[in-house]
Design a protein around this nucleic acid. Structure first.
Lengths: 202, 202
DNA sequence: CCCAGTACTTGACACCTGCCTAATTTATCC
DNA sequence: GGATAAATTAGGCAGGTGTCAAGTACTGGG
C-alpha cells in the first residue's frame, strides 16, 4: 500500500510541529529532528523542500482543521442576538481548541511578536479571516452595550486574551500556577475580558 | 581618560539589547553584532564572557533602572485606600516605562513563553519581586470590590495585559493598528482590565 | 517478472556559530 | 619615559547549519 510514504510524511510533520513550537523556528534543527526520528536529514528536503516549507506544511497539518472549525463557529455567531453568550462560548472554544494543540498556540504567539514571512503566511491563511469575522461580530455587538472601542482593537484584545495562557506559560509555571490552575486562569480570563468589554452587563 | 573602554562597553550593551530583542536570543549573532559596530567579535567575549553573560549584562544595563523605578512605584501603592486609581496609574506607568524601552518588553515577552535559564534569571531578578508586591497589593484590594480571584492569577492578568501590546506588536501592525493607535490600544486595555478586575465599579 | 518512479540515503559544499589562545596595540601609573 | 596592565585584534578550532547532487533501495503497475 502506498501509505507507507504518507505515514512517514505525517510522522515528520507531527514531530516538526512539536519541535518548532518547542524551540522556535531558528533554534529548531532539521538535523536533530530527523536524528530523533531515525531518518536521513535529507528526507525532509525531499518531501517538503526548504525548512521554511516544512514549517508551513507542519502548521497546515496541525492547525488547518482546528482553525477551520473555529472559523466556522465564529462565522455562525455573527449577528446573533445574545452577543455576550456567543462571545463567551467563542472564546472558550478557542481556548479549548488551542489547548488541544498547544504547539500551534505557541507558534502563533511566537510569530505574532515580530514581522516576517512566517507571520505573513499565518496572517493571510488563518489570522486574517479570523480577525475579519471577529471584528465584524464585535462591530455588530457594539449596539448592545459593548464598550465603544474600534472593532479591530477589540478583536486584538480578544485574540491576545485567548492566547495569553500560552504566551506566558513558562512564567505561570514559575508562579506556581501549574497545569491544574491553567483552568482557573483561562476561566477567570474569559469572565474578565467579557466584563471588561461589556461593563454594563447584559 | 579611562572612560573610553567603558564607552565601548556601553555601546556594545546598547546594541546587544536591541539585537537580542529584535532577533531573539538564538537568532542573534554576536559576530554580526560586532560587525555592525565595527569591532572585533572577540571583544564581547573579553568584556562579558559568554553570549549568555552578554545577554544578562545587556538586560541589566537596559532594564535595571526602569525596573527599580516601577518596583518602587508599586511598593508605595500597597495598602493604599484608592486601589483602583493606584492600579490604573501603576499599569499606565508600567506601560509607559516599557514603551520607553520596547527592547526590554520584547525580551521579557520572549522568555516568558519557554522555561530556561534566562527566564530563571529574569524571574529571580525582576519578575519575582514585581509579582510579589503586585500580588500583595491585589490581595489587599480584594476587600474592596475586586473580583475574587487568586492574587497570583490576577497578577498574571495584569502582567500579561501590560505586556500584551508588545507581545502582538507585529500582528497589530498588520491589522493597521500602527504606531499611532498603539496608544488607543493600551489606553483601552487598562480600562478593560480594570473594569474586568473590578466589575462593581470602585 | 521487470521496469519506471518514487522513497530514501550518502556524502559533500559553503557558510556560520560560539569560544579559546596568543599576539598586538593602547592606555595607565610610577 | 619606561614598565605594567588593560583593551583590542588576529586567527583558528570543532561543531553545527541548510541545501544541493548523485546514488541506492524499494514500491507499484504493466
Amino acid at each position: 500500500m502506498g501509505s507507507t510514504a504518507e505515514a512517514t510524511r505525517v510522522e515528520i510533520l507531527d514531530a516538526a510541529l512539536e519541535a518548532f513550537s518547542e524551540a522556535g523556528f531558528e533554534a529548531m534543527s532539521v538535523r536533530e529532528l530527523t536524528r530523533r526520528l531515525g531518518v536521513s536529514h535529507n528526507l525532509v528536503h525531499h518531501h517538503f523542500g526548504s525548512k521554511e516549507d516544512l514549517w508551513r506544511a507542519a502548521l497546515d497539518h496541525g492547525a488547518g482543521p482546528t482553525a477551520n472549525e473555529l472559523l466556522e463557529l465564529l462565522g455562525q455567531s455573527v449577528g446573533s442576538p445574545d452577543s455576550k453568550r456567543i462571545l463567551r462560548t467563542g472564546m472558550e472554544s478557542g481556548i479549548e481548541l488551542l489547548r488541544r494543540r498547544p504547539a500551534v498556540a505557541r507558534i502563533v504567539v511566537d510569530e505574532s511578536a515580530r514581522p516576517g514571512p512566517r507571520l505573513d503566511y499565518l496572517y493571510e491563511r488563518y489570522l486574517g479571516p479570523m480577525v475579519e469575522t471577529l471584528s465584524r461580530f464585535l462591530a455588530n455587538s457594539q449596539l448592545e452595550g459593548f464598550r465603544d472601542v474600534e472593532p479591530r482593537v477589540a478583536t486584538l484584545y480578544v485574540l491576545s486574551s485567548v492566547s495569553a495562557p500560552f504566551a506566558h506559560a513558562a512564567l505561570a509555571e514559575k508562579l506556581g500556577l501549574g497545569r491544574r490552575s491553567h483552568d482557573v486562569y483561562t476561566e477567570g480570563l474569559v469572565d474578565l475580558v467579557l466584563d471588561g468589554l461589556m461593563p454594563s452587563g447584559k
